[in-house]
Nucleic acid binder design. Structure first.
Length: 131
DNA sequence: ACAGTGACAACAT
DNA sequence: TATGTTGCCACTG
């Protein structure tokens, strides 16, 4: 646990949101950062997903659809990684998402609507806010 | 405590 | 459209 007591850390929040992305849809690092109230933390979102490779042995993180997160241009962003973006494209296609040769995805068709404020509250704080 | 790092994003060429 | 540059943020040793 990289956690400090009860406060859910940013990574966990990212994972919680990513888990909500339905099959056949995609979102972007920046959008997820926005949902969590940190519009400038897109990079940290990518870092959070990158950290999953070190936790692949932990079943608690095995169900995170990391492949559904791409960059703001609607393009797969891990082209230079050894694991290859090919895998990501392949998985997305198997989920019904059309990925072009240039690794582009049409946001008009596949962009996930995201979560509502109340749902974010629940993810971040564990329960509905009293308002 | 501090500097380095990275699966980003926005803007300039 | 394709690069390059700069600003950002959370996490790590």
């Amino acid at each position: 646990m990289t956690n400090s007591e009860n406060a859910p850390n940013f990574y966990e929040q990212v994972y919680a949101v990513v888990r909500r992305i339905p099959r056949g849809k995609v979102s972007s690092y920046g959008r997820i950062a926005n949902m969590l109230g940190r519009p400038r933390a897109a990079r940290a979102v990518g870092y959070a997903l990158n950290a999953l490779k070190d936790r692949k042995d932990d079943l608690a993180y095995a169900d995170i659809p990391w492949q559904r997160v791409i960059n703001s241009q609607g393009r797969i962003s891990i082209i230079n990684r050894e694991n290859s973006a090919h895998d990501q494209a392949t998985i997305l296609r198997s989920e019904g998402v059309s990925v072009s040769e240039t690794l582009h995805v049409d946001f008009d068709k596949y962009l996930w609507g995201g979560l509502h404020w109340a749902e974010i509250e629940e993810l971040v704080y564990g329960r509905s806010s009293p308002l």
